[in-house]
Design a protein around this nucleic acid. Structure first.
Length: 292
DNA sequence: TAATTACCTCT
DNA sequence: GAGGTAATT
């Protein structure tokens, strides 16, 4: 069946596709030569482009396609309402100004959990390779040589050695345990969005290989908890420099500060700080030298 | 509590 | 050494 003509158009405001797909929250998007993005979302291959305030999406099908695209890209959120909850500090203001339109995606909880388990001590390119390899090995074809991300029940039946063959290394054991916990219903990752934040977090932390950072990523990118605040080395670096005069402070102090300082959409603020910090090295903002 | 190290594999 | 975790000291 040919579904190539399933084209949807959205009028978008306060939205920037490039930054949203480049800021490290999703691992299945690839920028094609003409600026169009191709990615696998659930069981579909989407091709997306932004021209000014028009977002064009090809490949999303079914009666609820529009709703699903809106949901995935968080088009139903009013960005200014979110930004206005941020604290009024100069560094965050600058990051928001530079990356205006960046949005936290709403991705599949299981895929998010599995991807971030695979992410530890890995660079983005390697994470993309791992996730792609898992999809090719256990996913289903979605066209154009692409594959969906395999379900927890499928991965629960894999051998650890097969997972290792996808370059997971020591993370293979963790992913297998997570797949089994989800498949058995012990950690119902698809339901966590309806749980209390602390309870959902505790369930994720019960998985081997899932600590504070990965749990926060899953809560934020997969379960819709806007206040979840992942602290990786980049965000830690930014927080320490901006708010603690580069002093050495514990993770605990940082996370308590973040929860207090950034408010109900702390996770969104984190994405702006993270993206800005990642870009600092590549596009110097001017004061790098003074800090050494 | 804070610091160190192993854990896989690749750049 | 890398966007982390867990065990150990």
């Amino acid at each position: 069946m040919l579904v190539a003509d399933s084209t949807l158009r959205f009028n978008v405001v306060d939205f920037r596709l490039d930054g949203t797909l480049q800021c490290g929250q999703a691992f299945r998007w690839e920028r094609l030569a003409d600026g169009e993005w191709q990615g696998v979302v659930d069981h579909e291959l989407w091709r997306v482009r932004q021209d000014g305030d028009t977002l064009t999406v090809r490949g999303a099908t079914g009666v609820n396609a529009t709703e699903r695209v809106c949901r995935y890209f968080a088009l139903d959120r009013a960005l200014p309402r979110i930004i206005e909850t941020f604290p009024d500090d100069p560094a965050l203001r600058a990051a928001v100004r530079r990356h205006w339109g960046l949005r936290v995606l709403r991705q599949s909880p299981w895929e998010t959990l599995a991807s971030f388990i695979a992410s530890s001590t890995k660079q983005i390119v390697q994470i993309q390779q791992i996730v792609g390899a898992l999809a090719r090995r256990w996913g289903e074809p979605v066209g154009d040589g692409q594959f969906s991300f395999p379900s927890a029940s499928v991965l629960a039946r894999a051998r650890e050695s097969e997972l290792r063959a996808c370059r997971l290394g020591f993370r293979a054991r963790y992913l297998l345990a997570a797949a089994r916990a989800v498949d058995s219903g012990r950690v119902p990752v698809e339901e966590l969005s309806r749980w209390e934040f602390d309870r959902a977090r505790a369930a994720l932390l019960s998985l081997p290989g899932v600590g504070d950072k990965i749990a926060a990523c899953v809560l934020l990118f997969g379960c819709g908890f806007d206040a979840a605040f992942p602290i990786d080395v980049w965000v830690e670096r930014a927080l320490r420099r901006i708010y603690f005069s580069s002093r050495r402070v514990s993770r605990r102090v940082l996370s308590e500060f973040a929860a207090r300082h950034f408010g109900p959409y702390a996770g969104w603020a984190q994405q702006y700080l993270f993206f800005e910090e990642r870009l600092r090295g590549r596009q110097p903002v001017g004061d790098d030298r003074a800090e050494r």
